[in-house]
């Protein structure tokens, strides 16, 4: 899915064609559904983070004691969570 280019690994032409066809097929058939599933997970994660660590964004929900207990597990997600929550969104983001 996250198939970024890697110039360190040259690939044969046949393999490139195979990857291309596979990619097009995956893109047509499933990529939209995978993205939608990821988005659903994102909204659930937002909810969890708001409930547990909402005070980071000025929305205190549970006592800080519990937030601190959860903090070590949530640390890897905090940056992207804040980024997503603060990103400007409107109805045109809902299209796909």
């Amino acid at each position: 899915m996250a198939d970024s280019k890697d110039p360190a690994k040259p690939r044969s032409r046949g393999r490139n064609v195979k990857e291309g066809v596979k990619g097009v097929f995956y893109g047509m058939a499933a990529h939209g559904h995978v993205t939608a599933a990821l988005r659903t997970r994102m909204y659930l994660e937002h909810l969890f983070m708001f409930i547990t660590l909402g005070d980071m964004l000025g929305v205190p929900v549970i006592p800080p004691y519990y937030s601190l207990k959860i903090l070590p597990y949530a640390v890897p997600n905090i940056k992207s969570w804040k980024q997503r929550v603060f990103r400007e969104r409107d109805f045109t983001d809902q299209v796909f």
């Binding site: 893109g27 990529h31 988005r39």
Partner: peptide, 13 residues
């Protein structure tokens, strides 16, 4: 989730 690089073939499809 929303932002991640995808190969041009997948994105074209």
């Amino acid at each position: 989730v929303e932002y991640f690089p995808v190969s041009r073939y997948v994105l074209w499809g």
